[in-house]
């Protein structure tokens, strides 16, 4: 097992970590060592949920919370998220399909990369798509801008989902194949023939467009139907 610290270095504006055991340098974006004895070794990427405290607590009431010990309220980068600065070092690859600071949900599967801009997801929050030969479901909870990506293959069938009206703070999906009802935020089927089934999460990356395309110059960009 390795433990990680902050190297103080950046590659294309993104954190470079080091491990205390070998002092190899690891790219956060790749999850992979780029220098030192561990070069080439890749960490498993585990899906996380970036959301509001209220929504996380509602869906996971048994959660533990990292103790802030009375410190810190705001986010020290809060101005950076909105201003025009492209990282500390500027961008490496200019791709004007979107504005540099537009947020995208990035998915990378078996060598294929695709970016789903938040803007169209706000009006069309359920996308049935495929990346790298994997059938994926992209969902955006619009009040908190919580983006979740699932593998929509269940029992060997790629299900097609749509949003059910009236879910409120606990949005519901229905698959058109079986008519089962699913909790969008947890991926659990709660009613219908597939009740009890669970969709598997796919790790995704909420990123500024400039950073996503710096790291993935060949990325595909999701175009909403009718656009």
């Amino acid at each position: 097992m390795h433990t990680f610290g902050v190297s103080g270095k950046l590659i294309m504006n993104v954190l470079v970590m080091y491990d205390h055991q070998t002092r190899s340098l690891w790219s956060q974006f790749l999850g992979q060592a780029v220098k030192g004895p561990m070069r080439g070794v890749k960490l498993d990427l585990i899906p996380v949920t970036q959301t509001s405290w209220a929504l996380w607590m509602d869906t996971h009431p048994d959660t533990l919370v990292l103790d802030k010990k009375g410190g810190y309220r705001g986010d020290s980068y809060r101005f950076y998220y909105r201003d025009a600065e492209k990282g500390v070092l500027g961008e490496s690859n200019e791709d004007d399909r979107l504005a540099p600071k537009d947020l995208v949900v990035g998915v990378s599967l078996d060598g294929d990369t695709k970016a789903y801009p938040l803007a169209p997801l706000r009006s069309e929050p359920v996308v049935n798509d495929s990346v790298g030969g994997h059938d994926v479901l992209v969902f955006l909870e619009t009040n908190t801008e919580t983006a979740l990506v699932y593998d929509r293959g269940v029992n060997g069938v790629a299900l097609t989902f749509r949003l059910l009206p009236g879910g409120g703070a606990r949005p519901l999906l229905m698959d058109e194949n079986t008519g089962s009802t699913w909790m969008a935020l947890t991926g659990l089927a709660i009613d219908g023939p597939l009740k009890g089934a669970a969709l598997e999460r796919v790790a995704s990356h909420l990123s500024f467009w400039f950073a996503w395309n710096d790291w993935n110059p060949a990325t595909a960009l999701y175009q909403p139907s009718g656009a």
Binding site: T49, W53, T63, L64, V65, L66, D75
Partner: peptide, 17 residues
Amino acid sequence: QVLGLSIGGERHAYPIS
């Protein structure tokens, strides 16, 4: 805002701050 992580039935929330 938090990052939430759920593995093996255990869940941890990390405040972005």
